[in-house]
Design a protein around this nucleic acid. Structure first.
Lengths: 346, 346
DNA sequence: TCCATGGAATTGAACGTTCCATGAGAGTGC
DNA sequence: GCACTCTCATGGAACGTTCAATTCCATGGA
């Protein structure tokens, strides 16, 4: 009998082309194809490499993620966890950040899976992630310094990276912007434009970045020998911002420059400025912070501080993968610089 | 030697608890645990069911996605593909839609994977998806009637559902809002408030929904015996919208109501209205369309038409899963109703 | 001649689940 | 008592890949 068994050329039931089909076509073994696929150059010759590549191309082979994932214990997926508030409210750069994350992950041949929590237990999502290993790592954004999500992930050994500084006893896997430093060019610009009377309107809430922006604002002013009166530093939600702004503008010695804690607030301020018959950028300078799309929809457009989302996304993904590859690496956090965006509002 | 080899009770190298551990703990077979897991009630008794559940709980068992996926040929993941423009521009509900999708997918025990394309070849992403089967189905948003993505997916047999109507020769797996119908209550409201002089400012581009909103606007007016003058129907990008609005407001017989094609445009219009010293909602009525977060950031807030994103997301996911389960089911598309949102702008 | 060396490739096993075919045991009908 | 059905349960195989160990073969030194 010339051939006892010839299962080789049948495309197998699933119809999809697998690694063994490629192996057969290239005249090598399964494992060799796998090695080529994973670029383990020390295990194959230049010649076989090209034969395998040719076979893969001609068969239109694509490795099966589930199989790779099962065997290698890697999902090739990165999770992104966001709070509902980030979506509800118009945190200007959330969308840009999403796009940046999709790009950053796909650049390293990974996929981005998005998570939110809906019920009370914010950690439930993470318990599932840890147990089922559906993602190799998690990116947290809008994290507080003492983020319970980060703490949980650290305890359970799931790699993560956080957009926002973390407490010293947590692994320092974070990327953040230097909010305080970002304020300086903004203030410099305003002062050199002749402004001396300032007001600050920030978002309510105790997050680190909120305090830091205000602090940076104060420090920057101080460098010019200026200070902001205590009654001109205000906080609040949407409605409060409107009210604050109206009252500020009604004062006898009304501020000539209103510095907002973020673009969304600045947009509201601009609106209120107009609604009382003044003009932003001419009668009152208004600045934001984010540098996102919101600033383009106001009239005039916002002068703001741009957060380099693409860079941040890349760094976060990079930190995640380093942990996946090398185990827990506890490097220092990273502060990325911001840059000022000139619009018409200041 | 007392022990030659005893791999039995050792939790196996990976350290994770698997289906066989549960089986051992419950005193049943692997397959029975699997059956319980998948709710195949005809294959186990009530008694074994509770024993298995108890064992799973006490061991903290979570099924391994990769293994399930490999064997069952289901990834339990749904992809969402978006164009860069949806992220760059402030398509108001993109974020809300994201949140709704995350919720809708997690409600049916699936995950959401987000895709964009970066290079020229928009279909490259889909070629990968088809070949690697990383997702069971794809959700398209902002789809044109003759969407090439939908056509490609239909050809390659990957289930999909589209937010936006599709050409008749494509599988009718779509959900959409009735833009024309949505305009009617808005116009009714304006007319009953006494408005007779209308203008319309829409986004540029030939998308179906843009034409339909304008058409709905016209029809609704006609029902009141009114019509909009040809020179008061305008289109354009951001800058053009500003210019258009200024010119409209400068006319001797300026419109008393400006109907915008979406919230982003309406926001710009409101801004311009204020910047020329008028007040939206008092001197000029302004309406939007989307009913998203943008409308809350203008002063006054926008009167608009709310798109029921949660409902749409649910329906899209549902359509996807029906295809995955039952094969290609070619039901009719679904038009979901909108509702008017009352803000201060009209 | 013999053995160590090392590059290139191969084979058996394993990852954790579900599919498939089969089996044990109890109940039913004749 | 026997065949039949029905419920519940089982073990082997398979999904497609990578890990770990092994083989093959040419080379070179002792």
């Amino acid at each position: 009998m010339p051939e006892t068994r010839t299962p080789a050329r049948t495309p197998r039931r699933s119809g999809r082309v697998s690694i063994v089909d490629v192996a057969a076509a290239a005249g090598v073994s399964r494992q060799t194809v796998s090695n080529v696929l994973n670029g383990r150059k020390e295990y194959y010759s230049e010649d076989t490499h090209s034969r395998v590549i040719a076979a893969m191309d001609s068969l239109g082979y694509q490795p099966n993620r589930a199989a790779q994932s099962l065997r290698s214990q890697r999902s090739m997926q990165i999770g992104w966890h966001i709070f509902g508030e980030q979506l509800q409210a118009m945190r200007g750069f959330t969308l840009q950040f999403l796009q940046a994350l999709v790009k950053a992950t796909s650049d390293v041949d990974h996929h981005l899976v998005v998570f939110t929590h809906h019920d009370d237990d914010a950690l439930q999502v993470f318990k599932d992630l840890v147990a089922r290993r559906t993602v190799d790592a998690v990116i947290l954004s809008e994290s507080g310094v003492d983020d319970e999500r980060a703490r949980f992930l650290a305890e359970h050994g799931l790699p993560f990276a956080s957009f926002g500084r973390l407490a010293p006893d947590l692994p320092q896997h974070w990327v953040d912007i230097d909010n305080a430093a970002g304020m300086h060019p903004l203030v410099d610009h305003l002062v050199s434009a002749g402004h001396r009377q300032f007001a600050y309107i920030g978002a309510e809430g105790g997050e680190f970045w909120k305090a830091e922006r205000l602090e940076g604002f104060r420090t920057a002013l101080a460098e010019h020998g200026l200070r902001v009166p205590a009654n001109a530093v205000l906080h609040g939600d949407d409605a409060a911002v409107r009210a604050h702004t109206r009252r500020l503008l009604a004062r006898r010695n009304r501020p000539t420059a209103i510095v907002a804690g973020n673009d969304a607030i600045a947009a509201v301020v601009v609106n209120v400025v107009h609604s009382v018959g003044l003009r932003a950028g001419r009668d009152v300078a208004v600045t934001g912070f984010d540098g996102g799309a919101i600033g383009l929809f106001t009239e005039p457009t916002l002068t703001s501080v741009r957060i380099p989302v693409e860079r941040i996304a890349r760094e976060l993904v990079d930190r995640c993968l380093r942990q996946v590859r090398d185990g827990a690496v506890d490097g220092p956090g990273l502060l990325v610089p911001t840059e000022i965006v000139r619009g018409g509002s200041a």
